[in-house]
């Protein structure tokens, strides 16, 4: 168990049965009064954020989280299916859990899946992924309204800003942490 004095940014605890991460933390102690531990917490399953203030001597259950090496297999009607590369056990992550990360999954991609009580609650992707542009309007000469960028959609359905010279069918590299265009890739 953790106690109030263990609270710090990044600590993962169980609150109301669900894992929460401390996103911001401040220790406050007025004069001769008692210490307060002010936390901004994020529910790691739902993403909901909440503020909580704790006093000294409170205890917190550590969140039993495990990071597993897994491979992305396919999408089915429930969600996105991953396989543990050691045990071959399969886990399905829901669309809302993955958020925009779902757009960066390619077949057989090696990822790390964050698991809480056999429930996949997050995924760490490779920093860069290569995806093919499936739709992007050709650049109109003289159209400088949007600078030198234009919107493009890639094979997974994700839309992002790309430089005007990127054409349909081009393979591009995307930074999965920011979701932004990095460069063109030679096939």
């Amino acid at each position: 168990m953790y106690s109030s004095s263990d609270l710090k940014k990044g600590l993962k605890i169980i609150l109301d049965g669900e894992p929460h991460v401390v996103e911001a933390f401040d220790f406050i102690k007025p004069g001769k009064g008692q210490a307060l531990y002010k936390c901004k917490l994020r529910n790691m399953i739902t993403g909901t954020r909440l503020d909580r203030t704790y006093r000294s001597g409170e205890s917190f259950e550590p969140a039993p989280l495990e990071e597993r090496d897994m491979q992305y297999l396919y999408q089915d009607e429930v969600g996105y299916v991953f396989m543990d590369t050691k045990t071959y056990e399969q886990i399905t992550l829901l669309e809302q859990t993955l958020g925009d990360d779902r757009y960066f999954l390619t077949d057989n991609m090696d990822v790390k899946v964050l698991v809480f009580n056999e429930l996949g609650i997050g995924v760490t992707l490779p920093n860069f992924v290569n995806l093919k542009v499936t739709q992007s309007d050709p650049w109109v000469k003289g159209d400088t309204a949007a600078g030198n960028n234009k919107p493009a959609t890639v094979e997974t359905g994700y839309t992002l800003q790309v430089p005007s010279f990127v054409e349909e069918g081009t393979l591009i590299q995307i930074d999965t942490r920011t979701g932004e265009y990095v460069t063109r890739v030679k096939e």
């Binding site: 004095s5 401040d26 220790f27 406050i28 102690k29 210490a35 000294s56």
Partner: peptide, 8 residues
């Protein structure tokens, strides 16, 4: 003991 924060 145990006092550590932005002002402690």
């Amino acid at each position: 003991k145990d006092e550590r924060g932005r002002k402690h």
